[in-house]
Computed example of a mutant assay.
Amino acid sequence: MTDALLVALGAAVGAPLRYLTDRAIQARTPGSFPWGTLTVNVVGSLVLGVVTGATLAGADQRWQTLLGTGLCGALTTYSTFSYETLRLAETGARRQAAANAAVSVGAGLGALCLGLACANALLG
């Protein structure tokens, strides 16, 4: 199977998963804070860490292409994170905007490191 097809298959799962997860979480949380986007970005970072760790431990590179590039590329969304942070700031919710930026970056990096550590513990 070609790399392009692997990316397309992963994205075909990741994009609707992002949309459905975001809508489900936003429908259950009050206020304007973008909990749905935060959730998909942190989960995607965790999955990317596990997949990258597995690839570094010798797993077939096609898993990185399918799940890392395809699934996580479509699941996570830097553009929506940026837009929602800007929207919060423009509407006067500057503290929420700053919190969104700090928590998104910190939790995303933490989740990536946790995923790498889990893969290393299981496969390393």
Rank of each mutant, 00 (worst) to 15 (best):
M1S: 09
M1V: 05
A4G: 15
A4V: 15
L5N: 07
L9M: 12
G10H: 13
A12M: 12
V13K: 10
A15W: 07
A15I: 04
P16M: 11
P16D: 14
L17F: 02
L17S: 03
R18Y: 15
Y19L: 13
L20V: 09
L20A: 10
R23I: 09
R28D: 03
P30A: 13
S32H: 14
W35E: 08
G36E: 08
V43L: 09
S45K: 06
V50F: 14
D60T: 05
D60V: 01
Q61G: 13
Q64V: 14
L67I: 04
T69L: 04
C72Q: 09
A74G: 08
A74L: 06
Y78Q: 12
S79R: 03
T80C: 12
F81A: 04
F81H: 05
F81D: 03
Y83T: 15
E84N: 00
R87V: 12
E90P: 06
A93S: 14
A101L: 06
A101W: 02
V103Q: 05
V103S: 03
V105D: 01
V105N: 01
A107P: 08
G108Y: 04
L114T: 11
L114W: 15
L116C: 02
N120D: 14
N120T: 12
A121D: 03
L122G: 06
L123K: 01
L123I: 07
